[in-house]
């Protein structure tokens, strides 16, 4: 555990703020340009989902620096309505908003680890990790 910083997601512009901070942190950890783009894109998807479906929430970053493991862990947390059909939303093309429905399945492919906990009426917490290779 190295440092932790969070970006509150309230306005649309915070989506850009979150992915820029995430990219900066990824760069500092040592990720190359392709992984920086993957990480920034994943953050953008998670932050936009918070903004669109939960109204507000936050995205937090944590650099992982164990003995033989370096990486970046990102947690997106909101106290919105939660996700009703968890298995459905992980399928490509499922969207309740007329989007491409590429967001969550895309994030899973962009990152190395993906965990989602969502409870109706309580909110959603998505944790993703990218390992430095």
């Amino acid at each position: 555990m190295d440092f932790q910083s969070c970006v509150n997601i309230k306005k649309e512009w915070d989506i850009v703020g979150a992915r820029q901070l995430g990219r900066d942190i990824a760069k500092k950890i040592g990720f190359g340009t392709v992984d920086q783009a993957r990480i920034a894109t994943a953050i953008s998807e998670l932050a936009r989902n918070i903004y669109l479906y939960a109204g507000s929430g936050k995205v937090c970053f944590e650099a992982i620096d164990d003995m033989n493991h370096k990486g970046l862990s990102i947690i997106a947390i909101d106290e919105g309505p939660g996700i009703e059909e968890l298995s459905q939303v992980m399928e490509d093309g499922f969207s309740t908003s007329g989007g491409l429905g590429a967001g969550l399945p895309g994030v899973k492919r962009l990152m190395d680890e993906f965990d989602i906990v969502s409870e109706q009426g309580k909110g959603t917490e998505i944790k993703v990790v990218k390992w430095l290779r």
């Binding site: 392709v34 783009a37 894109t41 490509d92 590429a102 399945p105």
Partner: peptide
């Protein structure tokens, strides 16, 4: 379109 962006789009399934 940058190489990194092209690769990311494919991961997204776009």
């Amino acid at each position: 379109i940058q190489p990194a962006v092209a690769m990311t789009l494919i991961d997204l399934g776009i």
